[in-house]
Design a protein around this nucleic acid. Structure first.
Lengths: 359, 359
DNA sequence: CTGTTAGCGCCTTCAA
DNA sequence: TTGAAGGCGCTAACAG
C-alpha cells in the first residue's frame, strides 16, 4: 500500500541504507548531492516514514505522555499548553491522557503508554501513592511530576510555591483587619493542598491568631466540596469573616452557595444579607473578576511551569539516550540524583473592581 | 532488555505463535489449558507486548487522534472527555493534540499523527479550509468532524443545533420585550458562528425586527473580541438593549468591558449606570451564573456530542477493517456515503438568580 | 489446536 | 561515502 524507503531508494538510484541516512538529520555522513537527490525524490513521491517501524528499531517514539487528573480543567490544560510549547520546539509530540482523578486509572494509563514507548512522562499525580511511578522510574523511564509531589518519593518536580502563596493570601486578609479566617477545601493526599494549608497556618501564627478547629478541616477539591463546606460554615452561629479557598473549584462552590444564601434576587442582596464574607483563593482565571466574594487570588504561572517541566523531561530523555550509548555503563548507573524540586512563585492579585468592595 | 514473546513462549513451553494467539482476545482458537498457562507465565514474568512491533505488523495502533484548536477551553475538553469515555470502553487510546487555532498547525499535526498511524481522527476544525482533511480521507483514513463543519466538504460530523439554539436565545429576548438586539462576535470561517448568526436573524425576522447594520458584524471568537465589540457598542449614541454572544469567550469579554464601564466601585454601579444591557449567550458553564449581565444561555451537550463522535469514529474504523479484509473490494469501494451530520439539541437556561434581575 | 516460517519498514553494523 | 545483510518483536498464512 504505502510507500517505503525502498521505493525512494529505487527512485533515487541508491540503497535503502543511504536513504535512511539521508533522511535522518543526525545520521552518518552522506554526500550533499546524494542527500539532495534523496530528499527531492522522497518529496516527489510523497514518502512518509513509518513511525512504528522506526520505533521498533530505535526504541524511541519522540513522544512525551502527560497524565492529568482531568481534561476539563483550565489550570491543568494551561500546564499542558506550556509543555506542548516546549515539546513542539524540539520535534516531540505531546500525548495527553487523563487519570480521571483515580490512582487506579493513572496506573493503567501509565503502563499502557509505557508499552507504547512514550519516551518520557509528565504526571500530575491523582493521589498519594507512588508505587506505579517508582516502577516506571525503575525501568529507567524519565519522569517528572508537575503541580503536585508524591510523599515518600524523590522525583524531579515543578510545583508552585503553595506554602508561600497561601501565606501571602492569608496575610493580605489579616492586613485588612480580619481575624476570624477559615481555610476551605483540601485533600491530605494532595501535596499542594497540604502546603497551602500550612501556609495559611503560618500566617495566622505570625499574628498570634488561632483558628476555630472546625475551620481547618479538609473537605475535598471539587466544586461540590466548596459548596458543602460553605453551607456548613453558614450554619454556624458565628461564622468566619474571611475565607481562604484551596483552589478555584472549591472557591466556585463557595460562591455558588453564598449566591443561594443571599436569595438570588437582585444584586442588593449583598448588602442586605446578614453575612458577607470575603474570599481569598488559589488560582486566578478569566472568571475570578466576576466572583462576588473574591478579593484576592494567588495566580500560578501555569504556562511557565509547563515549559519548565517540558525542558526537564527533554533533558532527562537526552541524558538517558547518552547513557545508553555507552555500553560500559551498567543499569545501576541509572540516574539516581536526588529529585530536584523547582518551586515557581505565585502572584497575589487584588480584585478591587468587583467583589472586593461590598464588604 | 525487555521481555519478548519468545521468553513467554519458552517459559510456557509453546511456540511464539501460540503465545500471540493466546494473548490477543479475538484471535484463532487456543486450547483453554494452553491459554491459561500462557497467561499465567506472561503475568509471572511481567510480560508487556511491544506496541510498535504489533503496529508494524497489524497496521493499527488502537488510537484515535483528536485535534482541538486549543486545550485550555472547557467546551473542547468536555468534548474530549466524552470521546475518551467511549474510546476507553472499546480499548482505544485517545491522542489529544492542539492546532493552536491555526490551519497550518492543524495540517501539520494531522499528518504527523497519520504517520504515527492513528486509526482515526476526530477534528474540531480551526478554519474554513478542508484540503488537508480531504487528503486524509482520500487515503481512506476514518475522520469525523465535531462542533464545526467545513464548507465544501462532506464529512461525517456531530454538531449542535446552533441555528435553533441562537434562534431560541433571541426569541427569549424578544419575548422579554426587547427589540433592539445586537449579535456580538463570530467568524465567517467557522460554521457554528455562521449558523448562530442566522438563527439570530431568523428570530428577528419572525417578529419583523430589523437590526442596525453595525450590530451584525462578526468580530472574532475570543475574549478580546468580545471586549472590543462591547466597547464599540458602548460608544454608540443609542446602544442595543440586549445582546446575543456567539460563545462564552466573547460573552466574557463583553462582561468584562461592562464591568469597567460601570466603574468597578461597589455593586450599586449596576443600577447607577446609564446603560444596563442583558446578554444571552452560547455555552453554559460553571461560571455563567456569576456573569452579571447574563440572562440566558444555550447549553450544549458536550459530553453527549463527544460520545456520539467517539461511537461514529469507532464504527468507521471497524467498517474499514472489514472492507480491507476482502481482497476483492478495490480501493474505490472506499466508503463514499454522503457525510452524515448529527445535530444535537441545545437547552436554553434562564439565569434568574443573578444577572437576570437587575435590568 | 499448534508449530514453522516469512516478513511488516526501518536502522545499523560491517565491508567495500 | 555507500551497499549488503541482519534483525527489532510481533502476527498471519500455511502446514501438520
Amino acid at each position: 500500500m504505502s510507500l517505503t524507503i525502498r521505493d525512494v531508494a529505487r527512485a533515487a538510484g541508491v540503497s535503502t541504507a543511504t536513504v535512511s541516512r539521508a533522511l535522518v538529520p543526525g545520521a552518518s555522513p552522506v554526500a550533499e548531492e546524494t542527500r539532495a537527490r534523496v530528499h527531492s525524490e522522497a518529496e516527489r513521491l510523497g514518502y512518509r516514514a513509518n513511525h512504528a517501524a522506526r520505533s521498533l528499531k530505535t526504541r524511541s517514539t519522540k513522544t512525551v505522555a502527560v497524565i492529568a487528573p482531568e481534561l476539563a480543567n483550565d489550570f491543568f490544560m494551561a500546564l499542558a499548553e506550556g509543555i506542548a510549547c516546549e515539546l513542539d520546539a524540539q520535534g516531540y509530540t505531546l500525548l495527553l491522557a487523563t487519570s480521571e482523578n483515580s490512582q487506579e486509572e493513572e496506573k493503567k494509563r501509565l503502563f499502557t503508554l509505557a508499552d507504547r514507548m512514550a519516551d518520557g512522562f509528565i504526571v500530575i499525580p491523582a493521589g498519594a501513592g507512588g508505587e506505579h511511578l517508582e516502577s516506571l522510574a525503575g525501568r529507567g523511564i524519565p519522569l517528572v511530576l508537575i503541580d503536585r509531589l508524591v510523599e515518600g518519593t524523590n522525583f524531579d518536580a515543578v510545583v508552585s510555591d503553595n506554602e508561600g502563596g497561601a501565606c501571602a493570601l492569608t496575610r493580605a486578609l489579616l492586613a485588612d483587619g480580619f481575624r476570624r479566617i477559615a481555610f476551605v477545601g483540601g485533600d491530605s493526599a494532595i501535596s499542594a493542598a497540604r502546603e497551602r494549608f500550612s501556609g495559611y497556618l503560618r500566617a495566622l501564627e505570625e499574628e498570634g491568631v488561632r483558628p476555630e478547629p472546625d475551620w481547618t478541616l479538609f473537605g475535598g477539591m471539587g466544586v461540590d466540596d466548596g459548596y458543602r463546606r460553605m453551607g456548613a460554615l453558614l450554619a454556624e452561629k458565628n461564622p468566619p469573616e474571611a475565607l481562604v479557598a484551596v483552589n478555584l473549584l472549591v472557591h466556585l462552590g463557595m460562591e455558588r452557595r453564598l449566591l443561594e444564601y443571599h436569595g438570588g434576587g437582585g444584586e442588593a442582596r449583598f448588602r442586605r444579607g446578614p453575612y458577607v464574607p470575603v474570599i481569598a483563593g488559589f488560582d486566578e482565571s478569566r472568571y475570578t473578576p466576576f466572583l462576588p466574594a473574591c478579593r484576592y487570588t494567588a495566580a500560578q504561572d501555569a504556562l511557565g511551569m509547563g515549559k519548565e517541566a517540558g525542558r526537564r523531561i527533554l533533558e532527562k530523555i537526552r541524558r538517558r539516550r547518552e547513557r545508553e550509548k555507552v555500553p560500559g555503563s551498567a543499569h545501576n548507573t541509572e540516574e539516581r540524583a536526588a529529585g530536584c524540586v523547582i518551586r515557581m512563585p505565585v502572584a497575589i492579585i487584588h480584585h478591587q473592581s468587583f467583589g472586593g468592595n461590598y464588604g
